[in-house]
Design a protein around this nucleic acid. Structure first.
Lengths: 178, 178
DNA sequence: GTCTATATAACGATAGAC
DNA sequence: GTCTATCGTTATATAGAC
């Protein structure tokens, strides 16, 4: 989806506020104030608050789309999984706060559950990461999702630089899904 | 803190709604309706919504208090850590949805950050789990927190029974902090 | 402890001028 | 694309009777 400059400004401000206050704790007034316009100007770009949440999520997950397609085209399952895992870690580290907002915010979770395209995307992601595997593999994947999402924004890791964080995450992540 | 029966009814209803809709998405009207009384009756028990959130969190973390004290009294650091880890996993599994609400809800996180007693409790918890260790141990602990919190409520693990979940969580958890 | 009723503020969202 | 002004709803919270 191609966004105008005004829409991009709204999304940038919204994502920052969502990460800090949660989606439910972020009002359109706060978004408008943060950009320096009125609420009406924001509504001109997105006709409802839900649309802002959805667009923000699309932008966040969009960065994984390319990596997912590449992984699905890779015939070697183990290699596909490893490359996708690397992409997931990259995105999470690069956008530390966004990662946990999208994964854990109750409003985002509830909204995404009602949007089939998102469910399908997530299903494809896990399909590559754990295949059609059994109980133990599913549990490992669930722990992996939480481990990455939380580790990148946890106070304990706030002073860890990106490269180090990436390296450790990959190392431990492989322990969880191998 | 000793609670009256009326206060307990409020907390029970609040926790269930918090887990389902998030704290920000749960109004006092919803809590009152769920109990079958009016808002005014709820305000009689807790003078503000924040107080309900704090009391609910206290009750959730209170179940770890005893285990934490026992662990701190244990001279063998490795054994102390393992016993505390077991208690954390037990509480998380037993109250699957509550665990992630308390850890990840933006409102809870923001509110707890302004309550020194909670910060101290969390610091004590991590103190036993990772000691005064370095970067890698801190990162392992952060991943561990996310892994447990997410795994117990993830759709991928919804059909895994408690005993199996506990066993797997302990097994993988030890891979993260050893 | 619970009720009715209300104060006050903020929310999401829209109309219409510029 | 942004503004002022406003609608209708819901939120937190309180006063006072029973």
């Amino acid at each position: 989806m191609q966004r105008t400059a005004a829409q991009t400004r709204v999304l940038d401000a919204a994502l920052q506020l969502f990460a800090q206050y949660g989606v439910g704790g972020t009002s359109l007034q706060m978004i408008a104030d943060s950009i320096g316009v009125t609420k009406a100007a924001v509504y001109r770009q997105f006709k409802a608050k839900d649309d802002i949440v959805i667009a923000a999520t699309e932008r966040g997950l969009g960065r994984l789309e390319e990596a997912l397609e590449a992984a699905e085209a890779q015939p070697n399952a183990k290699r596909a999984r490893d490359r996708l895992l690397r992409a997931v870690v990259d995105v999470a580290v690069e956008d530390r706060r966004l990662a946990s907002t999208l994964q854990f915010d109750p409003v985002v979770v509830g909204l995404l559950a009602s949007q089939p395209p998102f469910q399908q995307f997530i299903a494809r992601l896990y399909g590559v990461l754990i295949g059609e595997a059994g109980e133990e593999a599913r549990l490992g994947a669930a722990m992996l999702a939480g481990a990455i999402g939380v580790a990148v924004m946890h106070p304990l890791t706030a002073d860890v630089d990106d490269d180090t964080l990436r390296a450790y995450l990959l190392k431990y992540a492989r322990r969880l899904i191998t």
